[in-house]
Design a protein around this nucleic acid. Structure first.
Lengths: 335, 335
DNA sequence: TCGCCCGATGTAATCGAAATCATCGATAAC
DNA sequence: GTTATCGATGATTTCGATTACATCGGGCGA
C-alpha cells in the first residue's frame, strides 16, 4: 500500500501538497493538482485512516449500541442512524448489548479510547464508564440517548412522548367500551415502559377504571407476549382488551388469543406499540402506536453532530410525533 | 485525556514499560506492574486507539455490509456476526448498502483505507474497488461472502445449499398433491434467488410439471409478495400452492390470499424461506426453510479471522445445514 | 526602486503508542 | 576472575498523515 510519501515522490511535490490536494484543493494550482491526482491514480493511493485519525483526533465514526439488533424496531432506528450518519460522512460502529450491562460498559470504553467520535445509545442506562465524562464535559459530551428519555442522566435525547401515547391507546379502548383492560409492559427499569405505564394508569384513573386495570410484565419478546397474555386471559375476569408495549409482544398475544380459541377483535381487542413493518400484515391487522423510527435515527445523529461540531448549546430533549394507528385488531367491547 | 507519557511520568517508568504492562505483562516485574496500574487507574488512562492502530496496522474492526439491515433475516445474521466478532475482540462496522452498488463501493474503500481489518459482505456483488485486491492477494484477501455463494469471485463464503433447499420445498408440495405451483423469486441477479430457482425447476422437471410452474419475480419485500401473489392468484389456472423465496414475501402472500378471500392452506398452500422469528407466529404458522442465521454469522467471522491470522490455506465454501420446517400453511391440494 | 504582501509550495514538528535496540546489574559458566 | 547470558527497563525510532511555519518569487503601491 503506497503512502503519501510515495505519491509525493512520484509527483515530484512535497507531502504537504499531496495532503492539500485532498483536504484543501483550492490552495493548490490546477496543474499541480492534476499531477498529484495522476500519481494517486497510478499508485492506487488511499490515505491511511489511522494516521489521519491520530493527527486530527477524529475518527468519523459513531458508535451505536442497541439492546437487540434483531428487534425490528431497533433495526429500523439503526437504519435511520446509518442513513443520517452516512450522509454526514460518518460510519457506524454497531454494538449489540443484548440488554447486558457488562457489554454496555465494554462498548463505552471504546469511546474513551477514541475509537469513535461519539456514542448513541438506545438503551436506558448510561454506562458507568462514561458518567465521569458527562459530569466533566456537561452537555458537550458526545453522547446521545435514543428512544428513551431520562432527564437525570445529562445527555440529549430523541424520543416520542410515551406517556401521552399510552394514554391515547387507553382512551381509544375506553371509547370502544372496554373497561377491563390488560396491559403487558416491558421491563419497568426502562422509562420506555414506566412512562407508558404511567400514561396508561392515568387514563384508567380518569375513567375510574384503575381497579379494572390488570398489569403484567413482559420483556418485549414474542414469547413473553404469549405467556403474559395467556395469564391475562386465564384471569377470573377476562380482560376484553389487551395493550402490549411492543408489536412483538402483540404478535405473541395474538397467538395466545388463538390458543384460547378466542377471536380478535370480537372477543379480545389488541393494541401493540411501535408499528413495525409487519404490524399491518398480521391477521387481524394490528392497531398500534406508530413511532417514527427513521426520524428518531436521524434526530439522534443530528443531535450528536451538533455536539461534535460545537454547535450545540445545551441539552436538548426532542420529542418526535407518534400516531395511534387504528386497524382491525381493536373493536367494540363484547356485551 | 492522559497519554502514555503522563502515565510513565506519574509512575516513574518509561513509556515502553507502560506499553508492556498492557501488551506483555509477563515481561515486567510485579511491583512495577502494580505501580503502573495504580497510575493508570489514578489518571484514568486509556490507550489511544488511533496511535495503536497506526503502529500495528491493525484496527480490530470488521466491516460488514448488508443490503438491508431492517430485514429480519439479515439482522439475525448480523447478530451472529456481532456476537462472534465481539467474542474474538473485534468490533463491527456496519454498512447498510440498500442494495445500491454505489454504497457497496463506498464501503469497500474503507477496507482499502485500512479502516477495518476485513470485510464481510452479505450481498452478491464483490465491489469493483476490491477486485484488484482479490486478484493480487488471492485467498488471503480479508474478504468473506455470507449467505450467497459465487464460486467465481474468489472469496470464501458460508451459506446453505439453496438449490437443494428449494428442491425440498417443491418435493414437499408435490407430495401433498399440488401440481400447479406458483414461485415468487427474489431478484435473479443474486445466486440466492437463481440457485433456488434452479432447484425448484429441477424438482418440477423430475415430476413432469415444468409447464405447470408459474414463476414471478419479487424483490424480497412484503409489498412485492402481495403484488406478485395477487398476480399468481389471478391467473387463469390458479396455483394451489405458492413458494416465496423469503418469509417477508410470504407474509405479503398471506395478505394477498386474504384479499382474494381464499383460505390458507385449504385453498392455497404457502411456503416461505428463512424461518425468521415471526414465521411461526403468523396465522397460519408458516411452512418455511430454516436457515441457521446465527451460525452463518459465526461462520463468516471464523473464516475471516482465519484469513487475518494467516491460518487460512485456501478458499473455503462452507455449506451449512438448512431444514424444511413444515407448519400449518401447507396442506393437501384441494380436489 | 524598495519593501511589503500574497499565493504556491516546501520543511519539519506533531499526534500517541509499539517495537527495536541499547543499557545495566546480576548470575552463571568456564 | 573474566565473559557470555539473561532479565528488567530505558532511549529512540517508527507508523503515515496533517499542519504550523518557513521560503521564495512576483506583483503592486509609495
Amino acid at each position: 500500500m503506497p503512502t503519501i510519501q510515495d505519491v509525493a515522490r512520484d509527483a515530484g511535490v512535497s507531502t504537504a501538497t499531496v495532503s492539500r490536494v485532498f483536504s484543501a484543493p483550492e490552495l493548490v494550482l490546477e496543474p499541480t493538482r492534476q499531477k498529484v491526482m495522476e500519481s494517486v491514480a497510478r499508485l492506487g493511493y488511499q490515505p491511511n485512516f489511522a494516521a489521519k485519525s491520530l493527527r486530527t483526533l477524529r475518527t468519523e465514526k459513531i458508535l451505536v449500541t442497541v439492546p437487540d439488533i434483531s428487534n425490528p424496531f431497533f433495526s429500523q432506528v439503526i437504519r435511520g442512524v446509518e442513513e443520517a450518519a452516512h450522509a454526514a460522512g460518518y460510519s457506524v460502529l454497531l454494538g449489540d448489548t443484548r440488554h447486558e450491562e457488562e457489554r454496555e460498559e465494554q462498548y463505552a470504553t471504546m469511546l474513551r479510547r477514541k475509537e469513535a467520535d461519539g456514542l448513541i445509545f438506545l438503551g436506558h442506562r448510561l454506562p458507568g464508564a462514561l458518567a465521569a465524562m458527562v459530569s466533566t464535559m456537561g452537555p458537550r459530551t458526545p453522547i446521545v440517548n435514543g428512544c428513551e428519555f431520562r432527564p437525570d442522566i445529562g445527555v440529549s435525547s430523541a424520543h416520542i412522548d410515551n406517556e401521552q401515547a399510552a394514554a391515547e391507546v387507553m382512551e381509544h379502548l375506553y371509547s370502544l367500551g372496554h373497561t377491563h383492560i390488560g396491559v403487558v409492559t416491558g421491563p419497568l427499569a426502562s422509562p420506555i415502559s414506566s412512562d407508558r405505564l404511567t400514561g396508561a394508569k392515568a387514563a384508567a384513573a380518569r375513567h375510574g377504571e384503575s381497579e379494572a386495570l390488570n398489569i403484567v410484565t413482559g420483556d418485549f419478546s414474542i414469547e413473553s407476549g404469549v405467556r403474559e397474555t395467556l395469564a391475562l386471559l386465564d384471569e377470573e375476569v377476562r380482560p376484553t382488551a389487551i395493550f402490549c408495549f411492543s408489536d412483538e409482544m402483540a404478535m405473541g398475544a395474538l397467538e395466545a388469543i388463538r390458543r384460547r380459541r378466542l377471536r380478535c377483535p370480537q372477543d379480545v381487542s389488541l393494541v401493540g406499540f411501535d408499528d413495525i413493518r409487519f404490524a399491518q400484515y398480521l391477521d387481524p391487522q394490528l392497531t398500534t402506536v406508530s413511532q417514527p423510527m427513521d426520524q428518531i435515527g436521524h434526530e439522534v445523529v443530528r443531535l450528536l453532530l451538533d455536539i461534535l461540531s460545537g454547535r450545540a448549546s445545551g441539552l436538548q430533549h426532542v420529542t418526535l410525533p407518534h400516531k395511534l394507528v387504528v386497524r382491525a385488531s381493536t373493536g367494540p367491547a363484547p356485551i
